[in-house]
Structures are given as C-alpha cells and as structure tokens.
Design a protein around this nucleic acid. Structure first.
Lengths: 166, 166, 166, 166
DNA sequence: TTTT
DNA sequence: TTTT
C-alpha cells in the first residue's frame, strides 16, 4: 500500500440490508447509512440540516453479520476504505460509483434497544447480537480456511504464547 | 502542527462524569471510558477478555454537555488527541499520566435507551439530550465570544452565503 | 450532527491543484490524490496493484494553501468528510459525484524533498511551506473574521489564560 | 470487542528504534514519535509550541520492518490502539505507562529523502524501503503460519477468485 | 431511506 | 469502573 485510504462512519441504516451470495458461495451485503449535519444559517438564522447517505459494501463474514443482526434503523460504526468502481449505463456511457468497503463493523444499539424496538429484533430465535467488533478476513486467505477458522475475530492483544510481553 | 495526533474511542462510561470549574469559570470534565477486546486463547482454547480504561478530559462546552447528559454506562464516541502530562507524586518523583483530550463528543445511546434505563436519565426536567456531535471550541477564541456564540456547533457544510458552491 | 462522517487519506497528488475563486471572493481548490494497494493474486501468484483516486475539495484558507504549496507529486495527509453531490449531465440525467471535503490538510514532504525534486518546488521565491496542519474555518463564522483572524490555525492545547490547567 | 480503541499518529522518530527479541523468537520494537502543535498565545501574542512524544510498540513483522527501515528522524504513519500497562517501580509502587500498540505502519519519507539525508539510509546494501503499508498479524494465528505466509500483507481488494465482484 |  |  502506498498511502492511507480510511473511512469511519457512525450512523443509522436507512433500509434493511441487501444480501447476495456470490457464485463462489460467499456473502455480500449492501447497507445504506445516513449521517447528517445541522447548522444555523447565518443569513436567515434558521436551522438547516443536510443528510449524507453512505453506500457500504460488506463481504463474507461481515455480510453474514449484517444479514443476521442489522436492520433498518440500526446504528453502526463502520471502518473501511473508499472504492470507486466504473460501470456502464444503458447508453454505454461510463459511470462511476463510490462505495465504502467495510473492513470492520460494530453494532451500537444496546440489546435492550433492539428488544424494545420491535421491528429491529433479530430474526432468529436465539437472536443474540454479539456486541463485538467484527473484522473482514483478508481475501488472500484460502476460502476454506476462512470458513474453518473465521478470521472475523477481533484482533487479540498480542500474547507470546502466554509469556507476558512486557 | 507537525504531525497528526488523533484518537477515536467508542465505549461506555464506567462512572458518572466528574465536573470541575476552573478559576476562570470554565468547565472541565473527566470521564472514564472502557473498551474491551476478547479473543480465544490459542493454548487453553478459552475465551479471554481485556478491558482498557481511557481517561478523557473535556473542556468548556464539551464539559458542560458531559455534565448534563452523560452518565455511568453511557455509550459515547470521542475524538481527541493524546496528551501526557507530568506531575510529582508525594515523594517528589516525576510521574506521567496520559489522557485523551476530547475535541468532539457524540452520544450513542438512543433516547429510548436513556428513558428506559432509569438511572441514566438526564438530571434536569427538560432532560433532552440532543443527538448531536459537539465540537470543542478553539481556545484561541476570546472567551466571551465562546460564550456568546458557542463554537460547539457542528461544522456546517460549506456555504458561500447561500450561493450553492457546486 | 447525527453520526460521524470521517475520511483520512494519505497519498500523492496526481496533478497540479485546480484553484478557483467563488463569486464572494473565497478560494476553492480541487486536488486528486492517489492511494494504492498491492497484493499477491492467490491464483496466479503474481503481484497486482490497484490505485484509487480521491477527488478532494478544499475551501478558503485550505484552498489557498493548496494553491501555494501543493504540486503534482506532493504527499499529503487530508482529513475530511464524504459529500455526494447530484448534478445533471448533458442529457439531463441525474449523476452523482462523491468527493471528500477536506477539513484539515498536512503536507508530508520534507522541505529538502521539494528542493530536490525540481518540478515540485513552490512557485514563489520564499517558497517555504510551513510544516503545519491547517484546519478549515467553520463556515458559520462571519467571513470578515475568517479573513481577519484566519481560523486555519491549529487548535492549540487548551490554556486557561495561561493558568496551567493540570 | 466492545467499542473502538484507535489511534492515528503521523510524526517523526526522536531516536533509533529499539529492537528486542522475545523468548519465543519474535521481534518487538519500541519507537518514540513526536507530534507538535503551535499556536499564538492570546495574551502575549507570541507563538508557542508543545511537543507530544508517543511511545509506540510494534510486534513481529512490524518490529522487523522498524528495525530495518526506520531511523531517527523518519516520518511515519502509525495506526494502533492504546494500551496502558501496570508495573511496579523500585519502591514497589504501582505505576502505569500508556503506549500505542501499532497495528499498521507506513513510512512517509520518499526514497530520495533517505538517500540524501545520509544518516537515515537503510543499513543494508539493497536498502530499499518498500513504500508499503504493513499490517500486524493477528496473534491468534499459529506462529508457523505467520512465518510461512506473513499476514503483514496489505489487505487486498476483495476478489472472488478473479470473478469481478461488481 | 435513517436518526435526533 | 462500563458494556456484551
């Protein structure tokens, strides 16, 4: 890598996550997250607000987590990187879309929140959303290993086989 | 500034905020915020967890907001900078304490959260915690202006006197 | 503000900055900054690289600094926020462009760097690029004050009128 | 993980890195990185500056890179997390030291920079410092795998076995 | 399209 | 001392 390409978003989902499965069986999720700013207009003196919608794409384990635990209205912390992809519209014209590829995801709603909010409760019975940060697995790992030992674990404090490092 | 000194913390307060007033009348708040990591020990196979406590100091408007709206258990987003200060213990020995000076604060509990959680409801009747990000005022501004026009407003989208910039 | 909308970019300019002046006399700069990632393709075993170009817009004092000190090839740290704006192409179709609005800028080339690199030396004689971080002025400040006391100063450590705070 | 514990530092090393080897053969590096702020004192009108020194610890591959390529004066970007560790001084008193555990490191000096700057040139003949971002390997991976396939590679853009994902 |  |  030459350089740093980092995005940090905290906001609420505007819709249910959209989940797809790739030909190779891996999951992809798209979520749309809002942030907004408000300020007092210096001419009229009135409050104004602008909302920014962030299109976020999640892969693999993060996509699965999004599909299981995120819902319209969920508040999330997402850390990722910008990725602009080129595509062609129906007229064959080049078009560009900028997305955030999420590398880390954290749910910010408390459990009670979800319990109380009815519509946002997890779909499945047990329905426990681990209040954990989930990390994206490096794509260079063989897929089977990603499955066998999901790399989406939070990076632990360094331990040297339990020899205290300090 | 030569360099970048930036900290981003999302976590929960371990205690009620401690609020003081400086000789010049300005407020200072100290909050203690926990983050934690958990991982599976690769020898024992057991889950382990480590909690990190962050000592955060807030000044002026941010301190006032902390005093009004934050409570033990509150979840916050804090952006700030590291500051290590030197002091002397009772033996005259040099000691160092590293704190995060918060430049921006955002409450992450939903309102219903606070309403439901009893103990964490705002102290004052109106008790409405604006779900806004508050910014620290640059200290170089004259204090009276900070008071008259609290700089803790979110930075607005740039507008050129309402001539649309794009 | 509801939420956090933050971008951090470290990379090199692909072109000379483009500087414009708004009708109200304020400066606007556009810079294009590259970041890249490289990785080993897990099938072919070959190294591959992808470059991401970030369109960054700077206002006021930051735009002036960009015009004076940045050049094709300059390495910068930019902190800002995402802003997607809508416009219409020649066919009247809605199009969207995502930009980073820079709120803070820092030049990362050492002075010797520029001196040696020939083409990138500052245009003006004195040509000293202050190794400082420059911040955007909140737009809500009256323009004349922004001019008189450019808010692009680094935010100082809090001082209580020189009563040491710790 | 409950929460986010993130630090971003851009600054210069105040000394040569200190490299040690752990009993299990893994490398650990300590570097000390300065950031500074300057501002105009609002009473005296004079410029003042404060320097903050950040103690950063790097493990494994990052430690090796630090040992090979970093030197007194090197400019670096470091992303990591805060870690406060407790120790006892010679009087048996509890003491605390806050460090940044670096998870990602990037050298910001251009190659020409180092070549020209004499004292900071890499120690070894080839002496080419890859202008790459290096990431820490999760400690939960078996050490031998970390060695065999060093996880310190930059995370690639997601590719689905070369089926274009978009 | 969210949230306050 | 928090949270999950």
């Amino acid at each position: 890598m030459a350089g740093v390409n980092k995005v940090i978003i905290v906001g609420n989902l505007g819709n249910e996550p959209e989940i797809r499965t790739m030909p190779n069986g891996e999951a992809v999720a798209n979520i749309s997250v809002a942030t907004s700013e408000s300020w007092r207009d210096k001419n009229s003196g009135e409050m104004r607000e602008i909302t920014e919608w962030h299109r976020i794409v999640l892969y693999r384990r993060l996509a699965e987590i999004a599909g299981e635990y995120l819902h319209k209205g969920s508040k999330v912390y997402v850390e990722g990187r910008l990725r602009t992809r080129k595509w062609q519209d129906q007229n064959g014209q080049d078009r560009y879309t900028t997305e955030i590829q999420g590398d880390s995801l954290q749910m910010l709603d408390s459990r009670g929140d979800r319990a109380q909010s009815g519509g946002y409760a997890p779909q499945q019975s047990g329905g426990y959303a681990p209040q954990q940060q989930a990390y994206a697995a490096p794509a260079s790992r063989p897929a089977q290993q990603t499955t066998a030992k999901p790399a989406a674990q939070p990076e632990p404090p360094i331990d040297f086989d339990d020899d205290i490092p300090f």
